[in-house]
């Protein structure tokens, strides 16, 4: 029988962008834009991103190293304030096993003519899945990809 346990964690990541909040927000709200930066590391096989950007709408994408476990991301949008805030909850599965559920808050704060983005994740890791900081690290990687995407706009 599976040993049941949980571990709760919170982390915050801040990034600054030269573009004003509406432009950074658009990178989240538009499915084509989001699919350009919200991807796994280079070399991973990936599925198409599906995004229904509205409160109650869902988002999904999957991917993984060739021959390795498939990571499934499934999100539900909980709160959207255009150009200001996005709140969602999401599950991660590795193959068939649910490894975590998280609440993610993204705030788009004006900073001069640019944006100070603040992302806070409050997560529950399930059944001995040993995160060891890898979720935070992976999320920082996503923000690097967002920064590269914004520079190309």
């Amino acid at each position: 029988m599976t040993e049941r346990s949980t571990k709760h964690a919170t982390f915050t990541i801040e990034r600054t962008f030269a573009a004003p909040p509406p432009r950074v927000f658009a990178a989240y709200a538009d499915a084509k834009s989001k699919a350009r930066w919200f991807v796994g590391p280079e070399g991973w096989e990936k599925s198409n991103l599906k995004l229904d950007f509205k409160v109650g709408g869902r988002e999904s994408v999957s991917g993984g190293p060739p021959g390795g476990p498939v990571h499934y991301y499934n999100a539900i949008y909980q709160d959207i304030v255009p150009d200001e805030r996005i709140v969602l909850t999401y599950e991660m599965h590795m193959d068939k096993t649910r490894i975590s559920v998280s609440l993610g808050t993204t705030e788009f704060n004006p900073a001069g003519t640019g944006t100070r983005l603040v992302y806070t994740e409050q997560a529950v890791f399930l059944d001995g899945y040993d995160d060891a900081g890898s979720r935070e690290q992976g999320t920082r990687g996503l923000f690097d990809q967002l920064a590269r995407f914004m520079e190309m706009q």
């Binding site: 049941r4 949980t6 919170t10 909850t89 998280s102 609440l103 806070t120 409050q122 529950v124």
Partner: peptide
């Protein structure tokens, strides 16, 4: 918006319930 975890553990005499709420307040 909050994420709530409720765990039910068998203990002598009954159940230890652990309720954790992680929330964002607007």
């Amino acid at each position: 918006v909050s994420l709530t975890t409720i765990e039910f553990f068998a203990v002598a005499g009954g159940t230890r319930l652990v309720f954790t709420e992680q929330g964002v307040f607007f």
